[in-house]
């Protein structure tokens, strides 16, 4: 029914590897598609790879995923570069994506973006000097009635004010300084 999972054919020294637990999940996703149609699992696995391997898709990571699905690396590259959610450059530890589209703009997303630029000392697309935050803008994230808003990882932070943004930044800083102490 399903293709056999291997650890990929990536030869790069720093080739990443999913944990055994994650491989079970990868196999479950591949099994959702008929035989020979396992390429359909690509996007979900790329999301998992980003989550597990530092928040971005390096060439070795993409080659590794190609190996798992037994497809050509170019098939992974073209997908990874087409969809805006995939980072093909290493971002900061925390990626903040502020929605800038019409409905959010009507309720003040420009102010939130300006405030974040000031607080982080970066332009949109930039990463703060300490490597902690990357500031991005996003097109409509489907939170139009709850704006202004930003997405961080899997989470939406809605009804933002500059005060709420400051509190969020503090919380992220605390979270990441504790996790690096561990």
């Amino acid at each position: 029914m399903s293709i056999k999972i291997t650890n990929g054919n990536a030869t790069d020294e720093v080739a990443p590897q999913f944990s055994a637990e994650r491989m079970v999940e990868v196999q479950r996703i591949i099994n959702q598609y008929p035989e020979g149609k396992h390429k359909s699992a690509l996007m979900r696995i790329l999301h998992m790879a980003e989550e597990d391997f530092g928040g971005w898709l390096s060439v070795p990571t993409m080659n590794y995923v190609a190996g798992i699905l037994n497809i050509q690396p170019i098939e992974v590259y073209e997908v990874a570069t087409f969809y805006t959610m995939f980072n093909i450059e290493k971002p900061g530890k925390v990626v903040l994506e502020v929605c800038r589209t019409g409905p959010c703009m009507l309720v003040g997303s420009d102010n939130i973006i300006d405030h974040l630029k000031l607080q982080l000392g970066v332009e949109v697309g930039g990463t703060s000097a300490d490597g902690m935050f990357t500031l991005k803008t996003a097109e409509c994230l489907g939170a139009c009635g709850y704006g202004p808003m930003l997405q961080c990882g899997k989470h939406y932070h809605e009804h933002l004010t500059t005060e709420k943004v400051d509190a969020l930044l503090d919380a992220f800083r605390k979270e990441h300084s504790t996790s690096s102490n561990n």
Partner: peptide, 10 residues
């Protein structure tokens, strides 16, 4: 029945 994610493309 299963569910699959996109990658951010209108």
């Amino acid at each position: 029945l299963s569910i699959a994610p996109g990658g951010g493309a209108y």
